[in-house]
Design a binder for these strands. Structure first.
Length: 336
DNA sequence: AAGGATTTCAACCGCCGTGTT
DNA sequence: GAACACGGCGGTTGAAATCCT
C-alpha cells in the first residue's frame, strides 16, 4: 500500500515529525530557499527542504523555486509574440483538458496514452516562462475567448457543402466550430494564421478521439497536420504533414485515434480518401509528393522532415515555426 | 469612497511514471 | 514483483489584486 503523499494528503507532517507549513511563502522562507539553492544547488527536494531549514515538503520547495524564485524567470505580461506562440504550440500539442476531452469524453483512457506534458513542452520554448504561468494564461485568457466566442453560421444554411463535416458527413459539431471561432477571434494574429491554427486544433488527434473528421479541401488550398505520437524511445515524436497546394478538390479525413498505431518505428497514416476509405501510406505519399513538388519552395525550417521523416518536438526550430505560420493560411473554410 | 464582481496567479491536490530497495 | 520515495504533471482552488458600478 502506497504511503500517503506528505505533501498532497492531509497528513502534512515532515520526516522529523514537525508539522509542515502550507500556503503562501513568507519572504524569510524565500530567502532560505534561494540562498540554499544558489549555494548548494538542486538535489533531492526533500533534502533541500530539510537542509534549508524549511518546514515545507520537497514538492512545495520545488514548485516555489521553479515557478517563482528561479533567477532566470521572466516576469510581467506575455508579449503578443509569446501569446501567439502559446496558441500555436497549443494547437500543435493539444491538451487533455476538459475542453478537449469534451469532444470525446468516453475515450479518456486513450488520452492517457497520448497525453503530452504539454504545458512543460510549451514552457520549454518560452525562456523565462513556467508551465504554471502558461497554464494560467491559457485558462484565464485564451479559454475565456473560447467561451465567449459564438460561431455564426452562414446565412445560407441550405448550402453546407463547404462546411467542415464529421466522419458521418454531418456538419461539424458546434464545439469544434467554436474552436474555429476562437482562433478567428485572436487579436494578435492574422486571421489567416488563426484559421490554420483552428484547423490544426480541430484535426489534432486528441480532440478527434473516436470521431474522425472530414474537412473539405478545395482545389488550390493548403492543408497542414502535424501528427504527434509516442515513439518507442520514449520521446514524443511528430510526423509533420505540411501540405502544399492540393491539386484536386477533395476532403481531408482525419481518422479516429484508435486506428493510429503506437510503438517503435510506427508511422501514422493520417489521411484517408473519403471515397475509397483508403488509408494506405502511398495514398498519403502521393499527396505529400504532389504538395512537395508544387510548394516546397514556400516551406522553410522543416526541410528534410518532408515526406514523413521523423522529427522530435524537441528539435523544432520555433522561430522558424512561427515564421512559417505565414504559409499556412489559405484554408477553404467558410466561416462567415 | 465603498463594496460587489471579476480576474489573476501562487499554491495545493491527486494521480502517474520511474527508479530504488 | 511488491513496496516505497520521489519528481513531474494537469487540474483546481482560493486569496489578493483589479475593475466596475
Amino acid at each position: 500500500m502506497r504511503k500517503p503523499d506528505p505533501c498532497g494528503g492531509k497528513n502534512n507532517v515532515g520526516a522529523n515529525g514537525a508539522k509542515l507549513r502550507k500556503g503562501l511563502w513568507s519572504p524569510e522562507e524565500d530567502d532560505k530557499l534561494t540562498s540554499y539553492m544558489l549555494t548548494s544547488g538542486q538535489g533531492c527536494w526533500s533534502d533541500v527542504a530539510r537542509n534549508a531549514g524549511l518546514q515545507r515538503c520537497g514538492k512545495s520547495c520545488r514548485l516555489r523555486w521553479i515557478n517563482y524564485l528561479r533567477p532566470d524567470l521572466k516576469r510581467g505580461a506575455f508579449s503578443p509574440q509569446e501569446e501567439e506562440l502559446i496558441v500555436h504550440l497549443h494547437s500543435l500539442l493539444g491538451n487533455r483538458s476538459p475542453l478537449s476531452l469534451s469532444l470525446s469524453p468516453s475515450l479518456y483512457s486513450n488520452v492517457q496514452t497520448y497525453a503530452l506534458p504539454m504545458w512543460s513542452q510549451i514552457a520549454a520554448r518560452l525562456p523565462g516562462r513556467t508551465d504554471n504561468e502558461i497554464k494560467n494564461f491559457w485558462n484565464s485568457t485564451i479559454k475565456k475567448r473560447l467561451k465567449n466566442s459564438s460561431f455564426t453560421p452562414s446565412p445560407n444554411t441550405s448550402d453546407t457543402s463547404s462546411e467542415p463535416r464529421d466522419v458521418n458527413g454531418g456538419i461539424m459539431p458546434m464545439h469544434e466550430q467554436n474552436i474555429m471561432a476562437t482562433y478567428m477571434d485572436g487579436s494578435s494574429s492574422s486571421s489567416s494564421s488563426m484559421q490554420a491554427m483552428a484547423l490544426n486544433h480541430m484535426i489534432h488527434p486528441m480532440p478527434m478521439l473516436g470521431h474522425g473528421l472530414h474537412i473539405p479541401i478545395a482545389s488550390g488550398s493548403y492543408f497542414y497536420s502535424p501528427q504527434v505520437e509516442v515513439g518507442g524511445n520514449g520521446f514524443y515524436e511528430g510526423h509533420g504533414m505540411f501540405g502544399g497546394n492540393v491539386g484536386v478538390e477533395g476532403e481531408l479525413f482525419v481518422p479516429p485515434l484508435d486506428i493510429i498505431s503506437i510503438g517503435e518505428n510506427t508511422k501514422t497514416e493520417n489521411f484517408v480518401d473519403r471515397n475509397t476509405k483508403n488509408t494506405s501510406v502511398s495514398n498519403m505519399n502521393s499527396i505529400i509528393n504532389h504538395c512537395y513538388n508544387n510548394k516546397a519552395e514556400n516551406i522553410t525550417g522543416f526541410g528534410s522532415y518532408w515526406g514523413g521523416d521523423e522529427l522530435r518536438v524537441e528539435e523544432w526550430n520555433l522561430e522558424e515555426l512561427m515564421r512559417d505560420v505565414s504559409f499556412l493560411p489559405s484554408l477553404d473554410f467558410q466561416v462567415d
